[in-house]
Amino acid sequence: MAATNGPGRGWLLRLVIAFAFAQGAVSMARPAVSYRALSLGADERAIGVIAGVYALLPLFAAVPLGRRTDHGRCAPLLPLGVALISGGCALSGLAGSLPEMAAWSGVMGLGHLCFVIGAQSIVARQSAPAEQDRNFGHFTIGAALGQLIGPIAAGCVISGRDGAMDRTSALALLVAAAVAAVSFASLRRIEHRAPARPAGPSARKVPVGSILRTRGVPAGIFISLAVLSATDILTAYLPVVGEHRGIAPATVGLLLSLRAAATIACRLVMTPMLRILGRTALLTTTCLLAALLCAGIALPLPVWALAVLLAVLGFCLGVGQPLSMTTVVRAAPAGSRSTALALRLTGNRLGQVAAPASAGLIAGFAGTAAPFVMLGALLLGAAGLGARGEGPRTAR
């Protein structure tokens, strides 16, 4: 899909704003779901299962949605995604059992997937090759802003005093539903209307196997999976770690938001870092440092040291997502960018199913800090793939 020359970059700003509210709602809801599940009697393993169900429906829906987007409009997925996120948050707040919590968490995850596939495809379609790193970096600032504000908001609303955890976590989920709905206001005139393309070789469906065998695509998928798994398990399990170490929910929210603020800082300076270090060195170095820092969370650190560790970790994790998007888009065969991005998201969701479930199992046997050692191993693998480079670019 060739980039579309549209009037300025106002569409990207509107997309970033919408993404910030949608992601803010999800980032507020994820720890709220964990706290509400704890108030309903969940243990570490049940938290892992609920976190995994968030990714289960998207695991099966990503590729069909990507196929549709490759040969149609992207924008309709955005309001659909916002509606599902808002509904999933609200119904999670009203749920009275752990199976209900898991089901509505899955609806929330499906909504997030719809929004992200539509939004990433718009960025890929409307960005010239030289602008992709910058535009994907700016696009993911929206996600980082949501991840910054969401946990703080959750921490301000949720309280464990005097048995108020059940009531306040439900309230946080209802507030998250309202935050998601604000995204609708920024969804106007984001996708440029392009003329219909004639049928040709690029209009044919490229088999999924061929896309996955294209050099650069598997590496981009795994790096994205590892980075997102780290962010996801941090969001879901830092509250559990906080409960075991006596850290208040408000402090946990601040710690998660500090991580997100560092990610925003990273993406604001992405272009000069790429110019100085290059893509391969930047990916490899940040994944390697993130692996060591994730494993460090398992240590019984004081809160101030944990804050420093999470800030540096957040900066390192800020590189993987935008660069993996560009890696996959550049490597994908012609006419299959959205499907390749959807496969990347399928890998993400597979990680979000397997990683929390594995984390829950590991935490049940080895303690709540053990899943962070597992994340360190994942990121170490991502650093190895990053060191190999993305291979030759596909001619466009």
Rank of each mutant, 00 (worst) to 15 (best):
I362R: 05
A75C: 05
G216F: 01
C74M: 08
G364P: 06
P272V: 00
G220C: 04
A124H: 06
R14H: 13
I152T: 03
A295R: 07
S97L: 07
Q23F: 12
N135C: 08
Q321S: 11
A25H: 04
A176V: 01
F136E: 03
R279A: 11
G163W: 14
I158G: 01
I297Y: 02
G163S: 09
A260I: 05
L98Q: 08
L65F: 06
R267P: 04
G367T: 07
G142M: 07
F139R: 04
Y237F: 15
F222T: 03
H244Y: 09
G220W: 01
T235C: 00
A144P: 00
L378S: 01
L258R: 04
A25M: 10
S202D: 14
A236D: 09
C316L: 09
A51G: 03
M273V: 05
A37R: 05
A75F: 02
R14F: 07
D162S: 12
I152C: 02
V240G: 03
A130R: 09
V16I: 15
L145P: 02
F19T: 05
G318F: 00
L350V: 06
A342C: 05
R125E: 04
A369Y: 04
R259N: 14
I233C: 11
E390I: 05
R259G: 08
A170D: 00
R344Y: 10
P195I: 15
L12A: 12
A366S: 13
A196V: 15
T339E: 04
R134C: 06
M108K: 06
V227K: 09
I362T: 13
A62Q: 00
A25P: 01
E100G: 15
G81T: 00
A331R: 02
G24Y: 00
A236W: 04
L145N: 07
R197D: 08
A295N: 12
R125W: 09
P356E: 12
A199M: 05
A203T: 15
A236I: 10
I264N: 02
L94I: 07
M101Y: 07
T285D: 08
R30H: 03
I117R: 01
L274C: 11
A62G: 00
S224P: 01
A342W: 01
G220S: 10
V16D: 01
L380G: 14
R67Q: 03
S169C: 05
S121L: 06
L293N: 09
A387K: 05
S86G: 15
A185E: 09
P198M: 08
R337H: 13
G118M: 08
A181G: 14
A22R: 03
G24S: 07
M101V: 07
L78N: 05
T214V: 06
V26A: 12
A219M: 13
S34P: 02
R259E: 08
L234E: 05
A61S: 13
M374Q: 07
A311L: 15
M165W: 11
A355W: 08
Y35E: 13
V227E: 01
R275W: 13
V227C: 13
S127D: 09
T251H: 10
I190P: 00
L361G: 10
A199P: 07
L375E: 06
S202T: 14
A219S: 15
A154Y: 02
R245D: 15
